[in-house]
Computed example of a mutant assay.
Amino acid sequence: MNAQQSGQKPADVLKGNYVTAGAEFTRDTNYITDRVLDDPAAQWPVEPGRYRLVAARACPWANRTMIVRRLLGLEDVISIGMPGPTHDVRSWTFDLDEDGKDPVLGIERLQEAYFARFPDYPRGITVPALVDIPTGQVVTNDYAQMTLDFSSEWKKYHRAGAPDLYPEHLRAEMDPLIRFIFTEVNNGVYRCGFAGSQEAYAKAFDRLFTALDTLEARLDTRRFLMGEQITEVDVRLFTTLARFDAVYYSHFKCNRQKLADFPNLWAYARDLYQTPGFGDTIDFEQIKQHYYIVHTDINPTQIVPVGPDLSGWLEPHGRDERFGGSPFGEGTAPEAPLPHDTVDPAHTAAAWVERSTGELRTDFV
């Protein structure tokens, strides 16, 4: 996640200083744009076991890479390292791992991989990042391109039955929708939360909910954003929707209405959450800890809310009966996540069901 605003120093951002008084939030979108390509002559060629994906569960941009990696079955060829939900003034840290070090890269902070390649790296240390294991150097943090390359450049390593998340014949329609979702929704919630004036906030608020109303209408006529099965655009929208009621509604003041008050968006989000590869990557506790602890300019007390009640995520969505289709088309769902990839059961929607009924729901995965 890179929430750096124009004029801010990376250390300011890592300290939680995201708001510039009197200004609109402007995201720094300058990333390391190197790519891992299916070309043996490339600087960074596709090679199983060579690269490690560093992706924090708390971050929506990193969460995308986790979902796509799972859906395509790339777990055995691209390993994953997971920093904790918060970071210190230097960078994301591997505080969840034994001795506070990533077991493969041997580093305490993601910053070390950035500095291994760029000793004077001037920008924010962001996740997701793809790291070259032999050299310990960051390859790319360009999250927008990263998942597209997982679909195209790593195709020979996809699992049998993997979905085509970026089908060639739909790209002319998908690409503008991808841009719309990023500018208006993914980044739209941040424009609300980090607005530096009432005027900037009001403008961002109207823009966000205009976009959500547009998507609500689109999902009244189709099960998924592109039709009868999941694609890349569903992954990109889902990670924002998964955080909406838990964080953005209150913490970012996106409170015209909750996600649960949008009939189509809420049913669609539940449909995806209950689809293997989506909900089983969501750690609601880490999500709340990140936003409420790190953003000290918005939440100086760093108190993390106990709620909201998340049990609704497991309620029937009815979109299969209404529209038909299948998330994976003629393909298959991914296998259950590997132990290292498994979310703490206490941090899931199922835990809320268990609290009220005494029964742990596992059927949704």
Rank of each mutant, 00 (worst) to 15 (best):
F252Q: 03
V304C: 02
P327G: 03
P300E: 00
K253E: 12
G279Q: 00
L310D: 01
G277C: 10
P300G: 00
D271M: 14
I287D: 01
D261Q: 06
I282D: 04
D309S: 06
A246E: 13
W266R: 04
G324P: 11
S250P: 07
A349T: 12
S311A: 13
P337F: 04
T281L: 10
H347I: 04
A350Y: 03
G329D: 11
D245H: 08
R322Q: 14
E285A: 14
R243D: 06
A349N: 10
I282P: 05
K288Q: 11
T301A: 06
D280R: 04
S250R: 13
R256Q: 14
S326W: 11
A269T: 09
T281C: 15
Q274A: 11
F323S: 03
H317T: 06
H340A: 15
Q257H: 07
D245N: 10
T239L: 05
H340M: 13
I293V: 15
F284T: 02
P339K: 11
K253T: 11
D283G: 05
A267Y: 06
T275V: 08
D320S: 15
R243A: 12
T348G: 00
E335K: 14
L241Q: 03
A350F: 05
H295Y: 03
S311W: 05
H347V: 03
V343D: 09
P337Y: 02
D261H: 02
T239Y: 04
P334Q: 03
L265I: 04
I298M: 10
E335H: 13
Q286I: 06
D271W: 12
L265V: 02
F244Q: 05
I282L: 10
T332S: 14
F252W: 05
D320T: 15
T239M: 08
T275D: 01
D271V: 11
Y249W: 13
Y292H: 12
D245Y: 08
D341A: 15
G324L: 08
P300I: 00
T240D: 01
F262T: 01
N264S: 07
N264I: 00
P305C: 06
F244E: 00
G329R: 08
F323I: 03
Y268M: 02
Y268W: 09
N255D: 15
P327F: 00
G318K: 06
Y273F: 12
L241Y: 04
E335Y: 05
A269F: 01
H317S: 12
Q274K: 10
Q257L: 12
F238I: 02
A246G: 12
G312S: 01
T239H: 03
F244K: 00
V294E: 15
F323K: 01
A267K: 09
H251V: 04
F328E: 09
A267H: 07
N299T: 08
E330G: 12
R270D: 03
L310P: 06
D309Q: 06
T240K: 04
H290E: 14
L338W: 12
V306A: 15
P334R: 01
P337H: 02
T296K: 10
W313C: 09
P334H: 02
F262L: 03
F244G: 00
H295Q: 08
A336C: 08
Q302K: 14
